[in-house]
Amino acid sequence: MKNRVGKYTVRELGIFAAFIALIVALAVVSGGTSISPRNLVLVIKQASINGILSVGMMFVIVSGGIDLSVGSILAVSGVAASMFAHPGEYHLAIPVALAMLVGLALGCANGFLVAFGEIPPFIVTLGMLTMGRGLALILSGGSPIYNISKPFENLAGGFFPSAGFPYRAPILSVYFLAVVAAGAFVLTRTVYGRHVYAVGGNEMSARISGIRVGLVKMSVYAISGALSGLAGLLLASRIVSGNPNSGSGYELDAIAAVTIGGISMSGGAGKWHGAVIGTIFIAVMGNGLDLMGMPSNLQLVIKGAIIIAAVFYDIRAKRKR
């Protein structure tokens, strides 16, 4: 392969170079504020919710599918958890477990329909996108659920370690890093992870190789759903309310992160660090542009252009082979 430098493809180095260039440019424009340690910690924290969704999205996209319902599942889970998070009512474990279970259940429903109903994932999860939003509005009665207990608020609002250390990380970023570590391990080091790649690369060949394609497909949506549930829980905790309108459009940010990170939309290819870099790329850009006081409408234009540029570059790099 001429398109390789050491372990990495030109494509991977390209996105990394663009990432570094972005950070340098923002540092210069902001006079160094953007690369202050405090700001970097903040960026990771702000990337966390999207990052957790992106890890789930990565599983689905590597398997050759797509999950448009993550934002809606996030909202349902967040609302469901908040309903049981009023002060002095239930133990904290109840809303936490509930959020994850709601996410898992909706994800399994997606997976079942894709794997065994043989409905295209775009359609199934598009339906779930709409249904999930409806469910969130029904559950919450249309308005945000307020009056949240302190322990629930501290789930995503605290620091790690909790006290007494000079250097503490926002706990939100700790969840993010834990999810990334677990996701990366499963995807790259386990038999299951290899099967996900195989199914995405060539479903027929995977089937002939004795892989239980249906189960693999179902499981990736379950993973994505459960992680959406976790993200919903953390978001509800972060904004101290269960908002049925939360997370709309988050699926697009997660897909954007995965895409910018060079994970092929046709499945079977892409590395976990791509999803992480893509997520942080988006967060860095948003943070930097906010610091510069750039209007958010213009930010949308820039973000869209970068997504297209990333995919354009990806396709060009592939064609050269």
């Binding site: 202050s36 405090r38 700001n39 924290k45 702000q46 945000p144 904004i239």
Partner: peptide, 15 residues
Amino acid sequence: DTEAALRLMENWLQA
């Protein structure tokens, strides 16, 4: 949006 406002404010406080 609550979350968007939270994120914006965090960023402004950094500036």
